[in-house]
Design a protein around this nucleic acid. Structure first.
Lengths: 190, 190
DNA sequence: ACTTTGAGTGAACATCTGTACACAAACTAG
DNA sequence: CTAGTTTGTGTACAGATGTTCACTCAAAGT
């Protein structure tokens, strides 16, 4: 993760990883069959942790009988991003990165997020009559917006000045625009 | 561009580029100071072409006195993507890729797109009273959605079956959701 | 007490990498 | 036609890279 924080995964050598781990190059093979294998494992680990965090966040909200809002959801996510910066750099970078197998792994996980979010959305009274397809499309849009916020945060120097606040405010506005649009979308009949 | 179609720019060696260009490694330096330099040039070239295409598209629409719609805009973009697949693979991959200077270059160009789009939006009667900041936020959202569509198209195997149509329909729906939301956004006073 | 196994070692290999340097060809301008 | 500038060549070097193979050695299991 240290290595991947600054450069693309595809440009990192097996030997660098071994050096970073304090073992000899050949010992790498005791743990992973190849670099690609390592990358996929990294994706799965990061995503597992993220999913748990988000699930806990939702449970917290439910416990307080609060509806998930744009603000609170974004807040939970960004807190997790700050705590796991390297992982997110990795995920954002490799989502469209150079190694097909890693892209696929990330894509699969993101699709799971969208599906979970779609289920949450389906419970909202206003969206009760939406088709599952449209719910998922809306969910994917929301995930995209969130992910873009994370990427912008990490790509820029989010420390200092008001860059982070700016990104947060922009993202919240974008989410509100979408929610407003969803409110007008496809009234139950034509 | 051939090299970058499959792997990340950071994992490509100067020697590979020279080999692909049919020159000896040292001759590379006659054209670029470094790989980073090459990358930035590639970004600028790709973006220049794309900008021209989009500008022509808008002029065409204006000539037919048609308003730019979600469908027509997306159509113009995707046609260009098909004609310049490698460039877009490169841009999508390196937008959050491993080399800071390249990220910066792409980010700058995308910001320009958003600004141009914001100006277009400001001319729509419904949005006449929007603040410039909100216009740009909406424009960035639209650019994000479009870019996500391009990325999804290129990451998947868009050839064959209905994958492309599926992505197009999803993206159009998402754009409509946003437009609907914009229609309800911030009525002129409170 | 003995054996199986998981993890790490070290040497060796053929290949690739960036870059320096002196030189040659090819194009351009006067 | 000639002088100057671009572009490309060949050689060279020190270092990095993936993977192989035979080996040690401690922990776990029986």
């Amino acid at each position: 993760m240290e290595l991947v924080a600054e450069r693309s995964f595809g440009s990192i050598s097996l030997r660098e990883v071994a050096r970073g781990a304090g073992i000899v190059p050949t010992a790498f093979y005791r743990h992973f069959a190849s670099m690609e294998d390592l990358g996929v494992t990294l994706v799965e680990d990061s995503m597992r942790v993220l999913r748990r965090t988000l699930r806990e966040g939702r449970r917290d909200l439910a416990a307080r009988q609060a509806l998930p809002t744009a603000q609170s959801s974004l807040d939970i996510l960004l807190r997790h991003v700050h705590d796991n910066e390297a992982q997110f750099r990795f995920l954002v970078r490799e989502q469209h990165g150079g190694i097909a197998e890693i892209r696929r792994a990330i894509d699969t996980e993101l699709r799971l997020f969208s599906k979970e979010l779609a289920i949450d959305l389906s419970r909202l009274p206003d969206l009760a009559q939406w088709s599952p397809e449209d719910l998922e499309i809306a969910a994917e849009l929301i995930v995209t917006i969130m992910l873009t916020a994370v990427a912008d945060l990490l790509d820029g120097d989010y420390r200092g000045s008001g860059v982070e606040r700016e990104i947060v405010e922009r993202t919240e506005k974008q989410l509100v625009m979408v929610f407003l649009g969803m409110g007008r979308w496809s009234p139950p009949t034509g």
